[in-house]
Design a protein around this nucleic acid. Sequence first.
DNA 1: TCATTAACTGAGG
DNA 2: CCTCAGTTAATGA
Length: 244
Amino acid sequence: MLDREQVYDALLKRLRAVSALDEEDVAAIRSIPVAVKNYRANQPIVSDGQRPTECCLLVDGFCFRSKTTSGGLSQILSIHVPGEMPDLQSLYLHVMDHDLLALTDCVLGFISHAALRDLIRARVGVTEALWRDTLIDAAMFREWIVNIGQRPALNRLAHTIVEMRERLKIIGRVKDAQFEMPLTQEQIGDAMGITPVHVSRTIKQLRQENVADLYRGRVTILNEAKLEELADFDVRCLHNKPGL
DNA sequence: TCATTAACTGAGG
DNA sequence: CCTCAGTTAATGA
């Protein structure tokens, strides 16, 4: 029972970070049925080609979206943190065009498409919040493309670190310039389009220049100003409400 | 299994 | 000639 409340809290926190919701919107969200499930690290949540009948909300842990080429190479498209709905698009794009996997062990709340459609029809405030959330998702993809397409490896990694920090900061998961970024170097390579060997070299460079350290899925920022300069991260792409 | 490092290679400026 | 990044292979935690 407590788990269900966590689902609503995570969703409301996320939506309120970007949109205003009135009391009736909140009540409507809290009355929606959810099924809480636990996933193990690396377990697929939704796969390419499937036709999901529900959307999931990440409550705890990390998951990621990826796409695999016919040659078997995989590209990580995005990393998701608690409060996000990584497969919200399946509500209107019925066939999955990529995979969603658990990055760490995680807790997910599943909401049926039918219930979401009812909610959207009943509450314009919720509709607008989800629409906004989807547009923010697209804005982050634009940042991701620019990062991978145009920056050298050092800046690429710095950018990804700052992006994760900014998003984790919103949900209160950055403490003492440290936060979780639980990717292996191979996964970082798949996310940034470089080989794992070069990921290792790049982390070594950040470490040696006292900019940041990345060890066993945990980032420690050593020189915030220098990291941000390398990252060239536009916080506006998060479209977060000021002061939150 | 994951991370580190060296040595070599080629592209491109 | 220099920087960046891929490949290969050996080694360490």
